[in-house]
């Protein structure tokens, strides 16, 4: 039953979604692409690109998009796909809701609590690993091509964007648009 699985998967992603949007992308990829095989690696990358360029938090955008695509890929109609979107989006937000009510009921200076502080000391290096793994997993033939020309072009694009983003802080939306134009011209 894909709807129940979607609910459970995105609830888990919401519950353990520490470390911001990109860490969450790594979890979505781990669950949705690697584990359940609901979408292909290149579909996932396309969704990330579109989520970056449209308004709103990247976590919501990608949950909505993944929910839809997973259900339609499983052979259901577009209307049912909308239901998949709604389930994924609601279930990724639900843990925040529950936690917020719990925290305000039993408020014990949650964020200053020594246990919470030491848990976060442990989480931070883990999140760095998550971010690194997301990039490593996506460096495959679906995203970089399989013929020599595609691979060389892709590595050149990757290196340029990496430097532009990391070193010169160029706006990511602008970078995606430029990559699109480069792809159109070079292929």
């Amino acid at each position: 039953m894909i709807f129940l699985q979607l609910f459970y998967t995105f609830f888990k992603i919401g519950l353990f979604g520490f470390g911001g949007g990109y860490a969450m992308l790594s979890m979505i990829q781990g669950e949705v692409v690697t584990r359940h095989d609901w979408l292909s690696s290149s579909e996932f990358t396309d969704i990330v690109a579109i989520s970056q360029m449209t308004p709103g938090p990247i976590g919501i955008n990608s949950a909505t998009y993944v929910g839809y695509t997973a259900v339609v890929n499983a052979g259901y109609s577009h209307g049912i796909g909308v239901l998949g979107s709604a389930i994924a989006t609601c279930s990724v937000v639900l843990p925040s809701f529950i936690l917020m009510i719990l925290i305000s009921k039993f408020f014990l200076k949650y964020q200053k609590h020594p246990v919470v502080a030491s848990v976060f000391d442990g989480l931070r290096p883990g999140v760095v690993g998550l971010l690194a793994s997301a990039a490593l997993v996506l460096m495959n033939s679906e995203n970089f091509g399989s013929d020599t020309y595609s691979i060389i072009t892709s590595i050149a694009i990757f290196a340029t964007v990496f430097i532009a983003s990391h070193k010169y802080k160029v706006n990511p939306i602008l970078l995606i648009v430029l990559c699109g134009i480069a792809g159109f011209i070079l292929y």
């Binding site: 992308l25 690194a132 694009i157 964007v161 699109g180 292929y187």
Partner: peptide, 17 residues
């Protein structure tokens, strides 16, 4: 267009690491 975008997105994910 998306063939160009994909490696760029991977770089955008790698950079914040």
């Amino acid at each position: 267009v998306f063939k160009g975008i994909r490696p760029g997105v991977v770089a955008l994910i790698a950079a914040p690491t």
